[in-house]
């Protein structure tokens, strides 16, 4: 994409990544202030994967996300105030504040939900793809999952069916090197991990997940393939989470040098440099964008914090659909 990258596209990609970074920073503050109850898993460092992927999609395409899912929701177009509201348990949130960070669903943007079960959403995306195929809508589904899911049986079952039936689904593995506090390489047999998809005759490859343009290109091809009815793809993006597994994790299992190496590949910095180099924006433009985004995000957080909590009468709503 680098060659034909135009200004509006590049700005959209850049802004979405910055928005996610700023959003997660606010979430961290909310958590530290005791506002966000429960567990929150931040996406900082992995922005290129979510943003590069969702940029290839139409609004009615599906995504199914996981526990580290705020970035996916933002990239797919959810409203950040309502996202904050959900994360701090307020009524205007996507689940009336009853779901929290790991249970955000947004039908408007085709978001089948962030998910608290490792691997839980993989068949959901596969099923949405099946439905799209049966209904002949041309929609595509993205299954986002972490490296930990590489060892969940349900991934293999889903890959097998997606391949058998040529379903329009793209499996997007975000390999940030760790499942909680365990290095993925310590618990995963077989190299490269792409073989797990390739074994089912699914096109499978590994990419730099710190470069939003690389992600965009790889996913574009896979999405196009899916839309043409040629079936699934299995993509692994190498990336890194800057924060702990969840807020509060001191990351004693990582070493400093590793962190520095990854931070030197920061996806936002990388995109910024490229945009300046290609004269798509000046340093000043970018700085202004950063500031604008920051103040928008901070303002949204402020609004969310003033939002009401759900009432007792919200407790039992939606247990069953009408």
């Amino acid at each position: 994409m680098t060659a034909k990258l135009n200004r509006p596209q590049s700005i959209k990609l850049y802004k979405d990544m910055v928005t996610i970074r700023a959003f997660e920073e606010e979430v961290r503050k909310m958590f530290s202030a005791g506002l966000a109850p429960g567990l929150v898993h931040l996406y900082s460092g992995q922005e290129a994967v979510g943003v590069g992927t969702c940029a290839t999609l139409d609004k009615d395409d599906y995504i199914a996300s996981h526990h580290r899912g705020h970035g996916h929701c933002i990239a797919k177009g959810s409203d950040i105030t309502r996202l904050f509201a959900e994360i701090i348990g307020r009524r205007p949130g996507y689940s009336l504040g009853r779901g929290g960070s790991m249970h955000i669903h947004d039908p408007e943007t085709g978001n089948l939900g962030t998910n608290g079960i490792v691997g839980g959403s993989v068949p959901l995306a596969t099923g949405a793809a099946l439905s799209a195929k049966l209904r002949g809508t041309g929609q595509v589904a993205i299954s986002f999952f972490g490296d930990g899911v590489l060892n969940q049986g349900i991934l293999f079952e889903s890959l097998n069916m997606a391949a058998l039936w040529s379903l329009p689904v793209v499996f997007v593995c975000e390999n940030n090197g760790y499942g909680e506090f365990t290095e993925i390489d310590d618990v995963t047999a077989g190299r490269p991990y792409t073989k797990r998809g390739a074994a089912f005759d699914i096109p499978a490859d590994k990419y730099d997940g710190m470069d939003v343009l690389v992600v965009y290109d790889a996913v574009s091809k896979a999405v196009e393939r899916a839309r043409k009815g040629k079936g699934p793809s299995f993509l692994i993006f190498d990336t890194y989470r800057y924060s702990g597994h969840s807020v509060g994790d001191k990351q004693e299992y990582k070493d400093e040098k590793e962190r520095q190496l990854w931070e030197a590949r920061d996806p936002i910095q990388k995109m910024a440099k490229l945009m300046v180099k290609m004269k798509l924006a000046t340093k000043n433009d970018l700085k202004k964008m950063d500031e604008e985004i920051n103040s928008t995000v901070v303002a949204a957080a402020k609004v969310a914090k003033k939002m009401p909590v759900p009432g007792a009468d919200d407790l039992a709503r939606h247990v069953y659909a009408p």
Partner: peptide, 19 residues
């Protein structure tokens, strides 16, 4: 295939998407 877990999960996803 004989994959009860994913067969059912996939049906949930399909149901969410309109089937």
């Amino acid at each position: 295939p004989i994959s009860e877990s994913a067969i059912f999960g996939l049906s949930v996803g399909a149901a969410m998407a309109g089937s």
